[in-house]
Write a protein that binds this DNA or RNA. Structure first.
Lengths: 168, 168
DNA sequence: CCAAACTCGTTGTATGTGCAACTAATGTAC
DNA sequence: GTACATTAGTTGCACATACAACGAGTTTGG
């Protein structure tokens, strides 16, 4: 039997079978859920999920406004991506840009009353979809298990940024 | 107290709090995991995840080849998206198009030896990332719970296509 | 058979996204 | 206080993706 010494060390840290099953199911569930929720929200409200996310974040923020950078972090978008998204939503009247008096570099994104109205239309539809396609399929124990397990995954990702460093 | 009769019926099917916690954690975990795995694979192999997915699907297919439509389904991409992706991978020599002798409309995408070599480089890196960032954070029970719970979600999405139908 | 309906894959076009470079404003060190 | 570094947001550019329309080939119903 040949001895793949370097490869064997790599193999020792490769995923086992239940892990890969969970991983594939996780990917598939995400892809199908997002596809379905996006389609339903678009069909019934004419609203993309990315717009909905912005409206939710703003509505939950103090004074219904956030700085561009904070909003970009909240909706998991790059700065340039958010600039263009806010351009579009602003053109539709759902948000507006306001200068930050305390920092002349900064810009607040402010939810407008039209934006709030749009969110009130969309929220029941989106939440019904989350319940129907996600929540309704899960027992109470399932929901708690998913939350606690994936919370550990998220926590693990917060720490080590990358593999870029050679031991000094 | 006012009676929002229609809204109350809607409220009755809205997600409860554990469901929303699981949902938010699920979204956050997915976004961060994909971001990290994409960055690591790109940095260490110069390979996008979408290319990796294609190589994996082809390598697992009989004769290392698949029809365009089948491959598009497997990697969750539209037909036009796959056409352009295969253009790029073909230009890099990782796959090639072959006519299907049995159906002159059809095109097989065939894994090349260069593509297989590239996959052999990339697989340990990607799988190490899955183990490190996902598998290693989970107990055996966690992995089984995620797989079984999300499998139910996937199954629920396979059936009802949309809300387009009014009761006939 | 043949015409209509369908399927396969590609193309034109529009949209969305990130990276790098840029401007403007702020913070820091001396 | 002045220079250097840092941060906030926008823009040019390239790339990736979806939708609709299309041409070529196949299947189906009569």
């Amino acid at each position: 039997m040949r001895n793949y010494s370097v490869y064997d060390r790599a193999m020792a840290s490769l995923p086992n079978e239940p892990t890969m099953t969970a991983w594939h199911t996780f990917l598939q569930a995400h892809a199908r859920l997002i596809e379905r929720l996006e389609a339903e929200l678009q069909l019934e409200c004419g609203l993309p999920l990315s717009w909905y996310d912005v409206l939710v974040q703003l509505s939950e923020a103090p004074a219904s406004r956030l700085r561009m950078t904070d909003l970009a972090g909240a909706v998991l978008l790059s700065k340039s991506g958010l600039t263009r998204l806010i351009d579009r939503m602003n053109a539709d009247g759902l948000v507006q840009r306001c200068p930050d008096p305390g920092d002349k570099r900064g810009t607040f994104v402010q939810l407008t009353s039209a934006g709030l109205a749009r969110l009130r239309d969309a929220a029941p539809i989106h939440l019904r979809g989350v319940q129907e396609h996600f929540g309704a399929q899960l027992s109470a124990a399932d929901a708690l298990a998913i939350a606690s397990a994936l919370q550990k995954v998220v926590a693990g990702l917060s720490g080590p940024p990358a593999h870029d460093f050679i031991d000094p």
